[in-house]
Design a protein around this nucleic acid. Structure first.
Lengths: 358, 358
DNA sequence: CTGAAAGCGCTTACAG
DNA sequence: CTGAAAGCGCTTACAG
């Protein structure tokens, strides 16, 4: 006890019980080169030698030091994923896809949450660069801040020069000349489709609710929304646009205010499912019914959209596939700018019970 | 194009544009030792020197190679978290706590999903051992398989000898002599409390639904359930026990079968919220009402329990805190077996609308 | 098929 | 306050 508290941490960390490749070599009576080769299985080794090495490994409980291995030139077998929040279903499902694909390619995942903070995002990319991740995957909407874009572009270049790659998953390109790989989903198309569906059901006064201004996701969805309005000859009404945040609390609160304000509308387009569900709650509290009095649609098709009553009509985003494709694209052979390096997955409307024809 | 496809991958990975500490030193006109010192900020360096180094770093876009740093003896500043599924809210919230605490202690998270597979779990721990993670946190229920326990205990020892630590978060100890840190929640106590609540509302025939046999979480919850029955003098009825899985589909399917079988009961204890919600859906489909005809409780208090109608009465588990505490305990100074190395967070019943007195 | 040795990019005593 | 040098634990040409 006394001893352990007086020892400096570094000494504790470096205590020598850890078996190294040299220990294994000694135990097996071979050179370290031979141990390395039998473990890497990338070079012929005699069967008898191999089994002696493996026995030694087993006996010593040896696992290679990934850092030494990485330093010596091997790949790190690591992919980084940066998301806004681990507990948010949108990111959770994308992360699941990344994790599953990475692990099927025998890689470990590094994960960090930005908490939707631009500077944190930049700092996290640097941390992953330090770790020499084979790829760094940026998930979800991006800030449209110019200084931020420039800084991220610089990191993309550094990563590329390093033999790694920055993957943009569900966010816009950083520019033609910036070496990145993109895996997107048809964000604006989904918004167009669900808005058009609302219009086809007779809705003309549609509230657009939620999503941070200055976020690429908001821009794309709002663009699709407006495009649908325009295609049907409906004039956009600024009074009906309420950007803000992506959470359920925002949807609930803002909807309460709007309901109190007596703004006229027959349907609400929630910028994501969480916002839509929050809005539904406010609507119910106000003594109104969905869809009889007000129709509501969401976006993302996360599980909650199936759980709520009435079940929410929404736009499906292939979240898990997005994650899988991101690592496939990042790790596959490709040329920057080539087709295979940039793909866009489809979205589609999932019709459930929250919209009524009027 | 042609060139890049003929180059071997390793050459691409090791292309030299990456600035090293030597490049920075040259650029700044100082020794590598000085660069290291100013970057680590753990040693006096003249202001003027420092700024020259920092300029060089900026100019070259230098970030230290984490592997070289780790190899040279510094800590890896990395914590590993192993969960069953990233997209499962239970694990998502614990992971959020881990991620937040780790990042506030300036550490990166390694994350991998076991898909509830024992052997995968063991393999993942080895991968994290290779990475020399400062701590490896095992989240959620553990298998009660004896061979598995032995293997995991061996890894705990190896980790400890390495200056790292295995953290058991929401799962039982591996034995007195096995060096681990535990952060638990009062699993059995929560089950006792919510069962007792059901009984206090007049329920006597309570169905226990879901959760894999052979999983520590199931064992703890079922034990609390039985203890509550016993405390009130209610004989346990094997007919009313339906173990199985943790997902919503299981809750739905099995409840359908049970409803069709005409088993008699007035309440159901869902082994977790997902199971409870699935059961509620089957009940509704059968034309029965919750709580008028059947009362239902869940466990975990994940968001869906608030989303469903009626809102689900459940047991709160401090998921995010569990994650935070796990990294605090792992990274704090402690002696194995000491109090601070082993804590248990409280659980409590959250009463909502899914239980009726009879 | 096997070994000796260089080198990966850092950190940290050891000397000034 | 600064530098030269050893060493961390691997992998990989280079020689047999």
């Amino acid at each position: 006890m006394g001893a352990s508290t007086t020892e400096p941490q570094s000494a504790a960390r470096n205590s020598r019980p850890v078996a190294t490749i040299a220990d294994v070599a000694a135990q097996a009576g071979v050179s370290v080169a031979t141990v390395s080769r039998t473990l890497s299985a990338n070079y012929p080794v005699a069967e008898s030698t191999k089994s002696r090495v493996l026995d030694a490994v087993e006996k010593l409980g040896y696992v290679a030091n990934a850092h030494a291995r990485a330093l010596a030139g091997a790949t790190t077998r690591t992919v980084g994923i940066v998301i806004a929040d681990v507990a948010d279903p949108f990111f959770g499902y994308v992360a699941r896809g990344v994790e599953r694909q990475a692990s099927s390619e025998n890689r470990l995942c590094l994960i960090m949450a930005t908490e939707a903070d631009r500077d944190r995002e930049l700092a996290i990319v640097d941390l992953m660069r330090e770790q020499r991740a084979d790829a760094v995957i940026l998930v979800g909407g991006a800030s449209d801040h110019a200084g931020y874009r420039k800084k991220m572009a610089a990191r993309a270049k550094a990563l590329a020069e390093n033999g790694s790659v920055l993957v943009l998953c569900g966010r816009p390109s950083l520019g033609e000349e910036v070496p990145t790989v993109s895996v997107n989903y048809d964000n604006s198309g989904g918004a167009f489709a669900v808005t058009d569906y609302l219009i086809s059901q007779g809705h003309r006064k549609i509230l657009y609710l939620g999503g941070p201004a200055n976020l690429s996701t908001t821009a794309a969805r709002f663009e699709g929304f407006n495009r649908a309005l325009q295609a049907r000859g409906i004039a956009p009404d600024p009074e009906l646009v309420h950007l803000g945040e992506f959470g359920r609390p925002f949807g609930y609160q803002r909807m309460r205010e709007i309901l109190a304000s007596k703004t006229e509308f027959t349907a609400v387009f929630g910028a994501n499912d969480l916002v839509a569900v929050g809005a539904m709650e406010a609507i119910a509290e106000a003594g109104l019914r969905v869809p009889e009095d007000i129709s509501v649609v969401g976006y993302d098709n996360i599980p909650v959209s199936r759980e709520v009553r009435p079940r929410l009509t929404t736009v499906n985003v292939p979240l898990e596939d997005l994650g899988r494709e991101a690592v496939k694209a990042a790790l596959g052979r490709f040329e920057y700018g080539s087709e295979s390096a940039n793909s866009t997955l489809g979205t589609h409307v999932v019709i459930r019970d929250s919209v009524r024809a009027i």
